[in-house]
C-alpha cells in the first residue's frame, strides 16, 4: 500500500485488527447491497461479542444471519429484524440483545457520527417506546428527541465500482446505508465489483469520496433476492 492506494490483497488483510467486542457498521437494506464477502470473513475469523449496526440482520444462512450461527453478535442495532428464525431464538433466550431504532434515525445516526456531530434532535419516536430515557426538547412549539450519533470500530461497505484511491460508486438501490456506514467507521473497508484506475470514474459521480475509505478489495457477489416479484 502506498500513498492513496487503498487496495488490499486479501479479505484477511481487509479485516485485520477486528477484535472481540468491537462495533461493526454494515451497509445494506435487506439482502440488497450487503458486503457479503466481508461478512463471510468475519465468520471465518470467529470474532465474538460484536455490536452490529445495520438496518436488518440478514436471513437464516445468508447476510449478517450467518454471524448468528456461532453466536458472534452480542448486540444488534437495527430498524427491522426477524426475517430470521435463529435471530428470534437467540433474542428470546437472551443470548442476543437488540436495540430497535427507527430507520431514518438509524441512517441519521450514522451520517451524524461520520460528520462529527455527537447527537441531533428528531420528532421521530416522540411519545413512543423509542423515547424512553431520552432527552426531549421543544423547538418552535414541537417536541423532539435527542438521539446520539453512532460510530464504529469498523464499517463494512458494499460498492459497485471504485478507483484504487477509494472513490466509490454504488449501483441502484444497493446504495441505501452504504455511504453512511462508510463515513462512520474508524476503519472503513469497502468491497466492490470492479476496481479501476484513478481517472476512470467521473469525479462528479462519486458517492463516497476516498477520504472515508481505508481499505478496498474486489470481490464476487451472489446478490441473493429476498422477494422476487415480476409482472407478466
Amino acid at each position: 500500500m502506498a500513498g492513496f492506494d487503498k487496495r488490499v490483497g486479501s479479505y484477511e488483510e481487509a479485516l485485520a485488527g477486528l477484535e472481540d467486542g468491537m462495533t461493526v457498521l454494515a451497509g445494506g437494506f435487506g439482502l440488497c447491497g450487503i458486503p457479503e464477502n466481508l461478512i463471510a470473513e468475519i465468520k471465518r475469523k470467529g470474532v465474538r461479542d460484536l455490536t452490529v449496526v445495520s438496518n436488518n440482520c440478514g436471513v437464516d444462512g445468508f447476510g449478517l444471519g450467518v454471524l448468528l450461527e456461532d453466536r458472534q453478535i452480542r448486540k444488534m442495532i437495527a430498524s427491522y429484524v426477524g426475517e430470521n428464525a435463529l435471530f428470534e431464538k437467540q433474542l428470546l433466550s437472551g443470548e442476543l440483545e437488540v436495540e430497535l431504532t427507527p430507520q431514518g434515525t438509524l441512517a441519521e445516526k450514522m451520517r451524524a457520527g461520520g460528520a462529527g456531530i455527537p447527537a441531533f434532535f428528531t420528532a421521530t419516536g416522540v411519545g413512543t417506546p423509542v423515547a424512553e430515557g431520552k432527552e426531549v426538547r421543544e423547538f418552535n412549539g414541537r417536541e423532539y428527541l435527542m438521539e446520539p450519533s453512532i460510530t464504529g470500530d469498523f464499517a463494512i461497505v458494499k460498492g459497485w465500482k471504485a478507483d484504487w484511491y477509494g472513490n466509490v460508486i454504488y449501483r441502484h438501490t444497493a446504495q441505501n446505508f452504504n455511504p453512511l456506514a462508510a463515513t462512520a467507521g474508524k476503519i472503513t473497508v469497502v468491497e466492490v465489483e470492479e476496481i479501476v484506475a484513478p481517472g476512470e470514474l467521473d469525479p462528479t459521480q462519486i458517492h463516497t469520496p476516498g477520504i472515508y475509505v481505508d481499505r478496498l478489495i474486489c470481490g464476487t457477489f451472489e446478490k441473493r433476492i429476498e422477494q422476487r416479484t415480476v409482472r407478466a
Binding site: Q103, A107, K223, E226
Partner: peptide, 29 residues
Amino acid sequence: EIDADMINAGKQTVTARTGASIFSSAESF
C-alpha cells in the same frame, strides 16, 4: 429485467420509472 440491486422498501424487485432518482437512506429520510 430482474435486478438484485433494484428493490423497494418491501424488498421486492422493482423498476424505476422515467424521471426517477436513487439516493442513500439518509437522503431518503
